[in-house]
Amino acid sequence: MIINHPLLGPRDAQEFVYLGDAALIHRPDGMVAGEDAFHDYLYLRDNPAGLHRELWYHEQGDRSWLVVTRHTLTHEITGVELARDVARAAGRSK
């Protein structure tokens, strides 16, 4: 596969490490949320046969974490963003 890195352009997926569902961005605040919230955060995942937003890490590249929107049936990639930008847009900060 080829991932079109937002800064570096098309790069072979072999340079990346896959993590999984980009919903991992939405980590609960551990001083507020309890075990149930963390349980859901960590273990409950959508597994769509279709478009899926996933975290990929450009380990053999610029070490950016990316959010890749990939079709799980065709491998078509329709969007690639810097995870940091996505996280900030989702309201994550410090």
Binding site: L7, L8, G9, D62, S64
Partner: peptide
Amino acid sequence: GPGGHAQGAIWAAFWLGPQH
């Protein structure tokens, strides 16, 4: 910038990652 190397008189640099 990304994907680049630049050579100055004494110093040179290449891009590692965002702001790095």
